[in-house]
Structures are given as C-alpha cells and as structure tokens.
Design a protein around this nucleic acid. Sequence first.
DNA 1: TGCGTGGATATGTATATACATATTATGGTG
DNA 2: CACCATAATATGTATATACATATCCACGCA
Lengths: 241, 241
Amino acid sequence: MPALDGDGPLWLQIRRALARPILDGSWPSGAKIPAETELTERYGASRMTVNKALHSLAHDGLVERRRRRGTLVAERAQEHPVFEIWDVAAEVRRGGADYGFTIHEREIVDGGGRHGGIDGLDAGTSLLWLLVEHRAGAQPVQLEQRLINLDAVPAARKEAFRKLSPGEWLLREVPWTEARHTILARAARGTTARLLHLAPGSACLVVERQTWDGETPVTFARLWHPGEQHRLVGRFEPRKY
Amino acid sequence: MPALDGDGPLWLQIRRALARPILDGSWPSGAKIPAETELTERYGASRMTVNKALHSLAHDGLVERRRRRGTLVAERAQEHPVFEIWDVAAEVRRGGADYGFTIHEREIVDGGGRHGGIDGLDAGTSLLWLLVEHRAGAQPVQLEQRLINLDAVPAARKEAFRKLSPGEWLLREVPWTEARHTILARAARGTTARLLHLAPGSACLVVERQTWDGETPVTFARLWHPGEQHRLVGRFEPRKY
DNA sequence: TGCGTGGATATGTATATACATATTATGGTG
DNA sequence: CACCATAATATGTATATACATATCCACGCA
C-alpha cells in the first residue's frame, strides 16, 4: 500500500495512495481495501477524513462500498480514466496488441494556414503541426491531427517524440486545468482515408480535444477512428438529483 | 428555493433541492447560491452536512466554489445531464426550436426477429419495437430504434406515447439502476438515410444505450444522428489521482 | 487619486463523537 | 442438520468545533 506524498489536502493524498494500485492493476477488481479503521491507523488520519477519500473514490466508480462487507475494487475500474484521457496507446496495450506510431508530417505553422488554428489564439501564433498514425500491430487504429501552442509549450519545438507519442508526451510534460471533448461522425477522404486503409467516404468517429492551462490554450487534437471498428463506451448510474 | 422532500439522507435532500432550480434553468449560470451558513439555518442542518451537498454538486460540475466569493452556478451546468441521459427533446428545446416526434413503426416482436434482441435476454422474450423520428422544427435530428422488454415494463404494451416520446416516458416511468452507452460512427443506408434526409452512405453518429434495473435488462435504444451536424460535448478537468 | 494593508467573510480541511443501518458471523434450539 | 435469533462489524449519516486560507473590501496614508 503506497505511502502518502505529502502534497495537498490529506484526504486527497489518501485518495491518490489508494487509486494508484487500483489503476495500475496491482489491486484487481474485487480486491478488498482495508477498512476505514485500519486506514485511520495506517495514515494517522481521523475516520471522517478516510471516509471522505473512500466516498470520493466510490463516487467516481473506482470502488464499491457496502455496509459490513467493506470496500472492494470495482469491476472495470481500470477503464474509467480512458473516458477522460482518451489515450490510444494504453487502450491498444490493454487489448493485448503491440502499439506503434508513425509521425507522417511535422511542421511549424501559424494559426492562419491550411491546418487551421487553435480556438482562442490569434492567427499569428506559432504552432507545431503533427500528423500521427497510431497502430495496433500493423493495423491503423487512429489518425491524429495535432496542433501545439509553442508559446505555451516551447519544449515541443525540439522534442523528437521518439519514445512517447505527442499525446503521451503532452499528458506527461504539460500541466493542464481543463479539456473539452467533442465527438462527431465524419466521412474519411483523401489522406485520412488512405492512412487508415479505408475506402473514401467511410464513416469515422472523430474526437476533437482542446486543452487549456488556465486561460491559455495548450493543444488541439482531432482523432480519427474507423467508425465500424471503434467504440466509445461509458457506464452510468442514475443521478442523485 | 425548493423545500426538502424528506426522502433519504439529509445531504442528498439538500443536494436535490439545490440541483433542481439549476437544471431547470431558474437559476442561470453565474447565479449566486446562498452561503453555507445561510443554508444551515434554512434547512436546519449542520454546516458539515450542507458542505457535503455543495461539495458533491461541485464535483459533478453543477456549481463552482471559491473561497470568499461563494458558490456560483457553473457555466453550461444545464448541459451536464445531457451527457448521461441523452434526451433529444430537452436539447432541441434548449436550442430554441420546436420539438416533435413521429412513431413510424410499432410492433410486438420476440428477441429472435430481424430487429435483433436485447443483450442478456433470451430470444423468446416479448419486446416492443419502435422506430421513432425526432425533429427540430421540420428538420429530422435523430432516428431512434428502440426495443423495450415487456416483461420488465408491461405498461409499455398499452402506452400510446402521445404526449411523451418513448424515451421520455421510459425515463419518467421506469426505474433503472445502470445504463451503458456505446458511441460509434456508421454510414446511414436505406430507411435510416431516407428518414434523416441524408444521401445513402452519409456518416452518422450512433449512440447505443442499454439500461438495466438491477439484473434485468429494461430497454435498448440505437440513436442515429447526422454526423456533420450533431456533436457530443464533454468538459473535463484533471483527475485527482 | 493611487496604493498598500488589514480586517471581514465564505469556503476548505481536519478532528472527535454519536448513533443508525445493512450484512455477515455466530451460536443456540428444535 | 436446518433454522432462527442475536451479536459483531464496517460503512452511512449527522453534529459541534477549530483552525486554515483565499479573496474581497474598506480604510488610511502618501
């Protein structure tokens, strides 16, 4: 059981300490989490504080709590972050396939060019344009059109993206406070169709994501997936309104 | 400000009482919610209990809380449930257009027929099949293929769906404990293309939703939207792991 | 007028305490 | 051995209390 990291409120520290082994799979679905009284001693916190951490994890679907039985790691707990972060690499690996990517285009542009700009930046801003193909084995599973705000992320200018794909690299290196996703369907044409091995006009599921750090737009990505093949899954419970 | 309904834990009662005017729009975005001390008096609860209700609303993005400034209704707070419930009628009305629907097909079938079955039910189960067109003004915005488990919802057999669409009726009348959404892209063909006024082969955004009440599957819906026109939007913040 | 400083204010966190409630475990009884 | 009553257990809810912290506002001074 991981130790506390000393960063921020105690209940969030406890939450993180418990979430980590759940998300990396070392506590599998159905595993029993120590009781509140035990965590109370282990972390030197009051029961109310421990309760807040566990309640928060339950609210986000990572654990299930039952009176008397205790707190168990939820089914499909590891899938939860996928819906928010939308990381192909992790998804491909979870499916058991080899993940690989190829950068087909790389160019420094401004916001007024044919690749478009980032919402909230003026046309003169320097952007890094990338066209990235993501594969599961030999099969293309995602085509990524990405723009990175070089004012916000100057390190991207020299980054080669050898080991980490641009998406993974950004997630790891760049802080962000907000992301907005738009999901739509569009027919693949031209280069898009060709790189995804699709007939022109095939339906694709497109996820557009723009990320901010405070007020500053950081990056925009348009992610194309073959429509018949790719599915976004979410699980919900009735709200408490 | 609504009164408490006396149903369930006090903090959830307070949560509901505050969520209602936010979701129905009577408290617009940016409106100030009474301070914790004031709600404490109004509802006869301790500050910790009020705090739990407000914290929970903030966690779900319905309100934003800042020290000293107080608690404000969040931007786009009314959109939040859309992501989960996916109610076209409310969405169309929010856009200012007239909402209307037409039931094109209605039939009692079993799970083995050409309309398919519901996952988790055997082929002999009686199902109500419906094909529903949803419009904003004269423009078709969604085509709904629906199957209802008549064992779980016997009242549906005689329901005419005159005022409420099947989706709204089910949401209101039938309890559910879990829903699963699948989002994909698919080309519209045949009747689907015709009813949506699309050329055959056009990309559509398809949302499939299956709902359970405990272990019992209740209903399955496949919702088709013209892909270029319809967008699913979500807003996220970094997780606290 | 402009600026900094300090007090007032509302939320954020943490604790100790108490009792309620659901569910499992136990043990006794027929 | 089956069954039912009862105890033990872990979470669920609620309160009172205390102090921390961010932020707005007003006051005083240059």
